[in-house]
């Protein structure tokens, strides 16, 4: 615009701007957008969210006798196993392990619904295997929270369960 040097153009410009003083705003705009881009890219939009775990207090020796007995049928044991499979059994560890695919959200929800309606006051144990990926453990706990199965505990596999897993692996292989 500044290159228009004819007198007519000059007159027109004066008419338009009033004073004839013409501030070049481009550098300022450049700067503004540069800052805008910088802040847009550095700002953290994805804040981490937290899954709160409250572990039961460790029972000391005195509490051993009065350990509350839970009826076996009320107990569900979930064993996070591979990236999308959770093994489970209900009751005593004398049946074969069954498989629950967590990736199939509808089936998983269905399973928990059925479990909730079949048992009053259910108790869930989550016992991940040593090499289970962390993701499936989190998914399982998250699912329990969503299903409002609030009585769950993170625990370690006992001998009978290790045996069951070995048997499950054996049947898969053959």
């Amino acid at each position: 615009m500044k290159q228009t040097t004819s007198k007519k153009a000059e007159r027109w410009r004066k008419k338009l701007t009033g004073s004839g003083v013409d501030l070049d705003m481009n550098p300022m705009v450049d700067m503004a957008f540069l800052l805008l881009t910088f802040f847009m890219l550095t700002t953290t939009l994805t804040r981490p969210f937290a899954l709160e775990l409250i572990m039961p207090a460790e029972e000391d020796a005195t509490a051993d006798q009065e350990k509350p007995a839970i009826k076996a049928s009320r107990v569900l044991v979930l064993i996070p196993y591979r990236s999308d499979t959770v093994l489970y059994y209900q009751g005593l560890p004398d049946t074969d392990l069954k498989v629950l695919h967590m990736a199939n959200a509808v089936a998983a929800e269905d399973f928990f619904e059925r479990f909730k309606s079949s048992v009053s006051d259910p108790v869930v144990f989550v016992k991940p295997t040593d090499d289970a990926p962390y993701e499936i453990v989190v998914t399982t706990i998250d699912q329990l929270n969503n299903q409002e199965l609030n009585r769950y505990a993170l625990d370690q596999l006992n001998e009978a369960e290790v045996h069951l897993i070995r048997r499950y692996e054996g049947t898969r292989r053959s």
Binding site: P48, A50, L53
Partner: peptide, 18 residues
């Protein structure tokens, strides 16, 4: 987690992505 429990920290947060 066991280290936390040994130190009587029974309440902790697992960070997840939404």
């Amino acid at each position: 987690i066991n280290t936390l429990l040994e130190n009587k920290i029974l309440r902790f947060n697992l960070l997840t992505e939404k």
